[in-house]
């Protein structure tokens, strides 16, 4: 196996892998959508609205999976100080926020016909909302620190702190929820979900995962190029003997 930890080798690796993973994502997505709309039966309680589940649950799965990916990348940044791990972290955060947003939006659109309201401060929805806030905060941190290596280390620490905190947040939100509203209205199937509904769900979840992996690879490639561009620009500015560069520095 080639050493894909080297950014240049990683780029050629991405170039070869990308068409395959993109094709796989599209095929699985088409299959999943077909199963959802033409095979999966309406739920006996929720009717056709259950079709929203095939978006909502994969998005919820990705919102957690992407945080796990980010945590692993954060460890890579701190332990091995690897630029590829930095790029992996940075590329994952907006994707995580996007899929978490999809989870919230579809949950809300599912909730309106089911509960009669756009939003319920249900334990699960609220935890996802907090996760969304954490993603947004991490993106803000990435944007605030200019030097990429320093930004990566700061974001890595915050990501790890968040990873430690997420179970605590989940626990406390659950606790808070049972305190305020004892009965939860919301149940998706429970363990006894019919196979005709489970199969499309699994296909959609795998399709979403491949979609994320494809987008993540593309975004990592962008980050590697962005760093290279930054380094070359600085280098060019240092080498050029342009008088503008020697001009008196602005007063601090």
């Amino acid at each position: 196996m080639p050493n894909i930890a080297n950014p240049t080798i990683f780029l050629s690796f991405v170039r070869r892998l990308l068409p395959w993973s993109a094709a796989l994502a599209i095929i699985l997505l088409t299959l999943g959508l077909y199963l959802t709309f033409f095979v999966a039966p309406p739920d006996y309680q929720q009717g056709e609205t259950v079709k929203i589940m095939y978006l909502h649950v994969p998005a919820a799965w990705l919102s957690l999976f992407i945080y796990i990916v980010m945590t692993v990348a954060a460890l890579g940044t701190l332990v091995w100080r690897h630029p590829l791990a930095d790029a992996g972290q940075k590329a994952a955060a907006p994707l995580g926020a996007a899929f978490t947003f999809i989870c919230l939006a579809t949950g809300s659109l599912w909730g309106k016909p089911m509960w009669g309201t756009w939003w319920v401060w249900d334990a699960r929805l609220t935890s996802v909302l907090v996760l969304f806030l954490i993603y947004l905060a991490l993106i803000a941190l990435w944007q605030a620190i200019e030097e990429p290596g320093r930004a990566a280390r700061a974001a890595a620490i915050m990501t790890l702190v968040g990873a430690v905190n997420l179970p605590i947040i989940k626990f406390s939100v659950d606790w808070w929820n049972t305190l305020h509203q004892p009965a939860s209205v919301f149940r998706i199937g429970g363990p006894a979900i019919a196979i005709s509904m489970l199969l499309p769900l699994i296909v959609m979840a795998i399709a979403a995962t491949f979609l994320f992996l494809t987008l993540h690879m593309m975004a990592i490639r962008n980050e590697i190029l962005r760093r290279r561009l930054r380094r070359l620009t600085i280098l060019a500015a240092e080498q050029s003997d342009a008088p503008a560069y020697i001009a008196p520095e602005p007063a601090r």
């Binding site: 929203i52 907006p94 579809t106 016909p113």
Partner: peptide, 30 residues
């Protein structure tokens, strides 16, 4: 369940498509 819920289903799929499409477009343009 009545037909009126198709609006919600459509909206959910539309939002998802928009978010994923926008994200893909942004990455490609970048």
């Amino acid at each position: 369940m009545t037909d009126s819920h198709w609006g919600f289903i459509l909206a959910a799929y539309l939002v998802t498509a928009l978010v994923i499409g926008g994200m893909t477009l942004k990455i490609l343009l970048d």
